[in-house]
Design a protein around this nucleic acid. Structure first.
Lengths: 144, 144
DNA sequence: CTGTATCCTTAGGGATACTG
DNA sequence: CAGTATCCCTAAGGATACAG
């Protein structure tokens, strides 16, 4: 996927601008993995249930870095790998993910969906978001 | 774009399931036009600032109907055209759009973005959603 | 194992012609 | 004008080989 410069955006609509980056089938899943499942390494993303291909993952990680939704640094011990983490811009996508879960969980859920997050969110979205952000913070303090 | 049957979904994650339908650069813009700009006809969608192509519009209108996010009926006077409108499933995407606007308006806005909706939403998202849904209701009572 | 590159097929989608 | 179909090119992305 190609990153659009602001001048190349399709319109000045904030939804269109958001979709210019996030409007594909993979980007938000990577962000989901970082936000909800505490994943930070290449191999962790690969193991997701959607079976993202390695080249696609590389591409999305780079795109998301280019537009400052995530950032990375070298792994402290394994120096040839990286740790990816969300920037503030990335963390601010949490409400979007939450609403997508509520909608997708209501209307598009496979019958065998493990409704873990969904039920928690449905009960108290605000609290869920607080907890999630708190966990991210904890991870950051330990790892960044 | 092809509609996936539930059995073909990439995973049982509600986000992935939602993206299986909405994860492209156009679908949510059509929904935005219906939700926020009170558009209901082919020609109205075409006139949007993003210049969607006629074949893409046809395709998305059909996809969105197939998965019951929108519905259509014959135009009362011009019998060779249709009126498109949101189902409940479609209207329930309003919170997603709102969060996308907040995020896109904060981080991706072109400098000349007319911040009409953005400012209103930022001030009071709940109220904005109420108003929007009320306007849709009003339109429905008059036109459906 | 992390990450990139290459090959190759298909899907997305722009331009435009066309039908009712 | 509403909506569809065709042409055609580019981008998305799966499989897999490869490099560090």
């Amino acid at each position: 996927m190609e990153i659009l410069k602001p001048s190349e955006c399709r319109s000045c609509c904030p939804i269109a601008n958001a979709l210019d980056i996030l409007g594909d089938r993979w980007s938000l899943l990577v962000i989901r993995d970082m936000m909800m499942f505490n994943k930070h390494e290449f191999g962790e993303f690969i193991k997701g249930p959607e079976r993202i291909a390695t080249n696609i993952l590389t591409d999305r990680l780079n795109c998301l870095q280019d537009c400052r939704i995530i950032a990375s640094r070298r792994h402290p011990t394994h120096k040839n790998k990286k740790i990816y983490y969300l920037t503030q811009k990335g963390k601010d996508l949490l409400p979007v993910l939450v609403e997508l879960i509520l909608w997708g969980g209501t209307y598009r859920a496979a019958p065998d969906m493990p409704k873990a997050h969904f039920n928690k969110i449905k009960r108290d979205p605000k609290k869920f978001m607080q907890t999630t952000l708190h966990e991210l913070k904890t991870w950051e303090q330990k790892n960044l």
